[in-house]
Design a protein around this nucleic acid. Structure first.
Lengths: 197, 197
DNA sequence: TTATGCCTTGAACAGTCGTTCATGTTCAAA
DNA sequence: TTTGAACATGAACGACTGTTCAAGGCATAA
């Protein structure tokens, strides 16, 4: 390497991701991104190729962060079901006001984009499916640990959880009412409780 | 009226709404709208004032159509709970592929817009709240008709239903799998079933 | 028929979009 | 010290954005 780049690629993607998360793909201009990451167009285009390229990496970084958090919660709590519950609580209640948006960036992207950006749309869908599979693994673990009633079907519960995650965060974006979020969060996890014998 | 307009205002709003529904606010250009409704910029701006003005009317027309459909289902079915169920089924399963988007236009708008378009964002939130109140009235009706267990709390169930409506349609936008939609739809309405005594 | 106001038209505006590229800078290897 | 490849810079590109407006068409009232 003759002359290494002077910026941290991951840090640039992180800043770009936060901006995309806040304003969405179309409303985020390259001018604004250039200012946010403090890079001139030449450097950005040499590194990411296009606005779409930068957005794709932002999506991947966002999803990777989510998966990492879920695994970390599982490790530190021991319980798979408790990890899921904490993950939901964190995404919906705690991070609510601090994050650039109350909604999931992947869900926002699936909502905003069309076939006109087919690759990005497919990438967002793929990452959402990955998260759903992570939910599935945790639910299976919970079941074999006896945390989840044997009558439950993790293969049906995982998409159901994913659906409710998207719904909860979309609802929060609409109402901005933490109390309602907390109440519905309990309603979501109520049927997962194993009845004490 | 000296020289009345030659176009049908409601029809224009309808066409614009379909385009906004498909592509979102930012990705829909006035040029494209002008072509879709076959009007020149002067007429559009004289009638709606701005892109935002046209979008606001599109949101209102969309919401009005939803409320009308819900009332019509209630009238023709007699049962409030059955009306809700049909409404969900129609929005999520049937209209799925035919509509410009699998998602709700109001939810898409809340997901896409920011404070940069505060009035439009507020309008979308208001219309979503109106729908939730329509849900609430039907749930109360169902309860007093004995369709809904007395233990249920319509004031908690209505936001829960709204949340799941948003979640279901967002999930469908992600997976495009009608079977999964049908399955989750049953899961949503399962706890509402009154147990036969 | 003329006069009066509304409606329609399409060219044009200033601004912004994503993107390119010639130019200048930096730094390890020769 | 010279060389040369990788990187940084910012002006500039053509296309497109939302919006305006002068000019012309139209239908009613006088």
């Amino acid at each position: 390497m003759v002359n290494p780049a002077k910026f941290d690629r991951q840090q640039v993607v992180e800043q770009a991701m936060l901006l995309f998360w806040q304003k969405g793909f179309h409303a985020t201009s390259m001018r604004h991104l250039q200012q946010a990451v403090d890079l001139r167009p030449g450097s950005l285009y040499a590194t990411f190729g296009s606005k779409e390229g930068l957005f794709r990496e932002a999506l991947q970084q966002y999803a990777a962060h989510g998966e990492r958090l879920l695994a970390q919660l599982h490790a530190q709590e021991g319980s798979a079901l408790r990890a899921l519950q904490l993950f939901f609580h964190q995404a919906i209640i705690e991070q609510g006001g601090r994050a650039p948006s109350r909604m999931c960036l992947l869900a926002k992207t699936v909502a905003e984009l069309t076939d006109a950006n087919a690759e990005l749309l497919a990438e967002a869908r793929r990452q959402l499916k990955r998260m759903e599979q992570a939910f599935l693994r945790l639910l299976q673990q919970a079941q074999s640990d006896g945390e989840l009633a044997l009558g439950c079907l993790p293969e049906q519960l995982a998409p159901f959880l994913q659906m409710q995650m998207m719904g909860l965060r979309a609802y929060m974006q609409m109402s901005c009412d933490p109390a309602a979020g907390e109440r519905m969060l309990q309603q979501v996890f109520m049927p997962l409780r194993v009845v004490p014998s």
